[in-house]
Design a protein around this nucleic acid. Sequence first.
DNA 1: CTGACGATTCACT
DNA 2: GTGAATCGTCAGC
Length: 201
Amino acid sequence: MKKLTTDFYRRSDVLLIARELLGKILVTQGDGVRTSGRIVEVEAYNGIVDKAAHSYNGRRTARNEVMYAAGGLAYVYLCYGIHHLFNVVTNDKEVPHAILIRAAEPVDGVEEMLRRTGKKKLDYTLTRGPGNLSKALGIHTSFNSTSLCSPELFIGDDGFRYPPKKIARSPRIGVDYAGADAALPYRFYIKGNPFVSGKPK
DNA sequence: CTGACGATTCACT
DNA sequence: GTGAATCGTCAGC
């Protein structure tokens, strides 16, 4: 499996990168244990012109500072005081694009992921939804600003590709506050995959 | 310093 | 379908 390099992340089309992340493998590795999942659902956040993004209108704070870094870093933040949400920072320095990873299919370390989440057996809830995914992979805010080429956190390509007809797009989830931008079709997911959040369609 | 709230999830009606 | 959990962040005073 090849690690994606900074060239992959530092391109300008965040929608293209989001789509290409489908089928890639998100890996975390600590204490010698590897946990990973194949990405099946993502959402793009388009910099300063996207009202749903933390960086809307150039907003720049201690929390979202990493969105302004050059692509290839992780942006992790706490939502609702409970859930750690994992994003991939893309594009060049000073262009705050990011992609939220919303769901994956478990690949390695299922036992470890069950232990972290307190679940008894593998089912669709293990890595379905951004909060659950982060919990299963052990992602927390200390990963914020970490390089996605790190040994303990990276995204790999094992050559697997979903057929284009399996890829669907839709408006993003949970961004109703964003007015007209809430309707933008910036969510990409694998049709029919049980780990994809939201209602099957 | 204070108060409002969120790129969510889960239990319960 | 509805509401609670839970706390860091941020705007405003």
